[in-house]
Design a protein around this nucleic acid. Sequence first.
DNA 1: AAAAATCTATCTAACGTTCGTTAGGGTGAC
DNA 2: GTCACCCTAACGAACGTTAGATAGATTTTT
Lengths: 194, 194
Amino acid sequence: MSKTKQTTKTDILKRTIPLFAQYGYDKVSMRQIAEAVGIKAASLYHHFPDKQALYIEALSLAFSNHADFMDESFVLQASPERRLRQLILGLCTLVNEDPDFSRLMQREIMDGDEKRLQFLADHVFGDFFRDMSELCLSMAPDKDPHLMSISVLGLVIYHFQISPIRFFLPGFQDSHNDSQVVAEHIFSLLKNTH
Amino acid sequence: MSKTKQTTKTDILKRTIPLFAQYGYDKVSMRQIAEAVGIKAASLYHHFPDKQALYIEALSLAFSNHADFMDESFVLQASPERRLRQLILGLCTLVNEDPDFSRLMQREIMDGDEKRLQFLADHVFGDFFRDMSELCLSMAPDKDPHLMSISVLGLVIYHFQISPIRFFLPGFQDSHNDSQVVAEHIFSLLKNTH
DNA sequence: AAAAATCTATCTAACGTTCGTTAGGGTGAC
DNA sequence: GTCACCCTAACGAACGTTAGATAGATTTTT
């Protein structure tokens, strides 16, 4: 009978991630989290010492879900150009299908302290960024791979970031919210780089 | 001798903008704003009806300061390629020299309601985005000008956004924080687009 | 095997703090 | 004398958090 009443830490975190992602740390109260989980605020303190710890654990879970994707995009043996294409499409799909992930990352980059930024760089960007730099180097040896990697990331992520306001900008079409269309556009920008 | 004691609305707003930009709406209290201005919190209500109004007016001021820059970049008659180069450099300089502006915009895009997004699109992006789309169309007629404009914006803005974490990423160099270096990199990515 | 003790997850109630905001009074300038 | 500007003091609400009790499951003891 305990199945329906007990709450695990992971249950709480999964319900918490969308709240922090959408509203940000300060706009989400412990009572609001508790309600989303189906318990009272005080009960949260049985699972987590304080709000900060709950947030950090939610972050870790949200990020760990996608830390592996990054690597996978690189294992396939193909031409650099095909790998870049695949990578951009994968990134576009990722940020579009998991907005929580993208928003949490954005909030962390904006407001995170040094320790949290270090964590982000090591465990989320980490290997991905290194592989990306290598790929850039093999495609455009004359360009700075660090700048190139950030440019690729920026192209993908900004198209997602700006989507709330995109509707109000001149020339908007529904297709601009399609991650495949955006991916193709970005790839067409980069493939001629030399 | 009222010069040293009186406070004008604009004085308050100018002191408020950096606070909202750095910490965000919720993390800035009326008492904190008042202290930065040199008065008490209650006195703020002589100038503004409530915190929300103060924030909106601060936003308007921060944005109006740069609404005109956008246009200026387009008046000069030159080849599209030179205009693009100039525009990218101008944008890079803008976002680097006025981080408050960039951060406020980022926060608004993330958390603003529909009305505020509409305002942002009309009065900040507005003409700039239209001119940018035209420029893109003349340089790359086969590409969607809406997507192209956002890509250019994204390249510039993301390089700024990610600067807090850049230090921790592989391949970082001091020069990557130089807006001119970044501008040149971005331009080199785009000039070959056809 | 039954009873007792412990542990786990939750609850209600409340505490102390901070927040946005208001009421009401003072003081100097025009 | 009126108005603009600032002050002190306080209010009510919301917040994070703690104390203490309760019910059910689990473990230990008899």
